[in-house]
Design a protein around this nucleic acid. Structure first.
Lengths: 211, 211
DNA sequence: TCCAAAACAGGACATTCGTCCTGTTTGCAT
DNA sequence: ATGCAAACAGGACGAATGTCCTGTTTTGGA
């Protein structure tokens, strides 16, 4: 009964590290397989964490999901969309840069898993209102960043003949939808076509950009 | 042991009816809660079917899912999008009619559940290739119907300054994405904005329509 | 009328799910 | 050194899940 395990190696408590590994594994799994299709057992395996450790950091799977959205999904939108848009000299160039970067990245790997935010939005928005509110906030931030850049271009003297807020909705929507279609086709073609269509619209309605 | 049940009332075999009720319940549940979040037990309850009946018509849950896409999701796209587009005098009017009809319908009920095709695409495309192929085929049909109508307008003499196939991708993508955003917001605003943005684009690039 | 096959009833079945529980170990303040 | 809470280990637990199995009833053709 009292089987005493040999003191194999010293255990080192690493709360931040464990939390990070778990959340990384969850972000990867939720983004590719979905929230409900990922079991906590899978996450324990991937993160190399035990049930006790996981329960200590996240009381429930839902808590983990909320943390993934807050800490990883929001950051991914920030990194892949908002940063390129703000860094570019114009909104139009930033939007094209974001599309191009994501398309190139997708073609680097073999599969199209879709936009993490959009995936979770569709799977969880109606399932739980806490998820919904968090996800919606990321969408709002995304839209506002693009609209803000368009307004900045306009203040800088660009002849922009479109409504910044409304056009930002079109950009985010067409990107999300194109990604869903690319996921169904397992081919980046819809994304490439969409990027070109948005480029064409902007070319016509922002006649002479900053250059 | 040999408990003989009283011959309560005559049973009447109704294979088509049972199949229809099951598939209707599955379509409703998959569209609102998702495929994985719907249990076969729920479906038996909703359809008023027993385990034996369900197993007789659909060997597995996956078979039922495939049937739902083939028989109901494809028909819904046909009914809510392709029919209005083809029935309208121009593609531009048809697209606006489809948006308007769907938005009005959503505001009739209390909640936004999203586009059934898009929902299932995101949940199942990477999960199983049989689902993926079927879903992609519906997307292709959808895109081609819109592109075909644009080409018909062009043949009829309309001055259309856009690529039919490419613009059809933008229409489907922006609709799907806007629906996802509306689902996250539980408000039709993104859909309304997107419809208006597409209308604006078409207004400028199809100068004088058929009227 | 009879019989085989289709249609259905109802539950058993092994898994898997997420959560919780009881211990043990680590780290830090005192 | 010592006490105590945080951090972690590892498995138990009941409540699902989807599938399958055995039996009964209905149906339509011979």
């Amino acid at each position: 009964m009292a089987r005493q395990a040999p003191p194999r190696h010293r255990r080192s408590n690493d709360p931040e590290g464990v939390r990070r590994r778990v959340i990384d594994a969850a972000y990867a799994a939720f983004s590719t397989q979905g929230y409900h299709s990922t079991s906590v057992h899978d996450l324990k395996r991937e993160a190399g964490a035990t049930g006790g450790a996981l329960a200590h950091h996240f009381a429930t799977k839902k808590d983990l999901g909320l943390a993934v959205i807050r800490d990883r999904v929001a950051a991914a939108v920030e990194e892949t969309w908002i940063r390129p848009v703000l860094a570019a000299s114009t909104a139009a160039e930033g939007i094209q840069a974001a599309f191009a970067s994501i398309i190139a990245d997708l073609e680097g790997r073999g599969a199209v898993s879709g936009c993490p935010l959009n995936n979770l939005a569709i799977e969880l928005a109606r399932h739980d209102d806490d998820f919904r509110v968090l996800i919606d906030a990321v969408f709002v931030r995304w839209r506002e960043a693009i609209a803000g850049k368009l307004k900045a271009d306009l203040s800088a003297g660009a002849a922009i003949d479109l409504d910044p807020e409304a056009f930002a909705v079109l950009v985010v929507a067409s990107y999300s939808g194109a990604m869903a279609m690319s996921k169904a086709k397992q081919d980046t073609e819809p994304l490439r076509v969409c990027a070109e269509q948005l480029a064409e619209v902007m070319r016509r309605r922002i006649p002479a950009a900053g250059r």
